[in-house]
Amino acid sequence: MSTQHEHTDDGEPETPGDRRRAEKAARAAEREQEAADAEPDLGDDAVTLKVFRYDPEVEAKAEPRFDTFRIPFEKGMTVLDALIAARDTYDSSLTFRHSCRQAVCGSDALFINGRQRLGCQTQIADLEGDVVRVEPLPHQDVVKDLVVDMEHFYDQMEAVEPYFQTDETPDDDLEEQFQTPENREKIKMSTRCIWCGACMSSCNIAAGDNAYLGPAAINKAYRFAMDEREGENMKEHRMELIEQENGVWRCQTQFSCTNVCPKDIPLTEHIQELKREAVKSNLKFW
């Protein structure tokens, strides 16, 4: 959990502003409780959301808890729609990331009914049970409510030299490089990654070992290693990167990342293929 930070805009430990803020927080907590307790009669067409709440800075939320919201159900409603309705109707402090609403920005990977999913891509009607339970992604530090700290995920993504590099430095005159449709098809699935972090959160190895690059970063490495435009020397360099001790050999082929990927990327297969390539190229140099 992230720690409470100091306000830099005042030097005093206790100012009227702090007191007012505390009072306001207390009132907000009261309102939230009322909203959570009130169960308006919405008939059968209502969704019950149980949502994880935590805010290190607000006393009533400093201890993690679950709030319950009852939301009128509408056809086609997604978990993200329901969260927005809960926030805009009952509690504007309910906090989660969202942006595109169409499964391409990767902001709203959440732990929904015990599984990593995108809120916007999950139809309420497709979920089993009477209650939709929404939690932040496991194995990541919670910043507040459903928002997790993504820094570690980003660091791992950026550790694999996640950018196109060719053997030869191209000169200033830009010239189109050729790529066979087959090679483009080969990397196609790997390029679909939206950096949502669902895979990393589902991976037991990554959970126990912060140094492990994790499925998304290895998939990113795969995307470049398999791109014939980069050239053979670069491929060797890429293989070295992913063969290091925190790379592909940590994967225990449990398929949890593949199972939760919202873009259906065959992550485990990509990791396995890199392992095979690594074995092959090592044999070659013996």
């Binding site: 992230s2 930070h5 306000h7 803020r21 505390a22 306001k24 927080a25 907000a28 309102r31 805010d55 290190p56 800075e57 607000v58 509690d91 504007s92 402090s93 906090t95 989660f96 910043v143 507040k144 409510d145 928002v147």
Partner: peptide, 12 residues
């Protein structure tokens, strides 16, 4: 008015 009093990730 902003109901959420928090300085941490205040989307409100």
């Amino acid at each position: 008015t902003v109901e959420d009093p928090s300085r941490t990730y205040n989307t409100d």
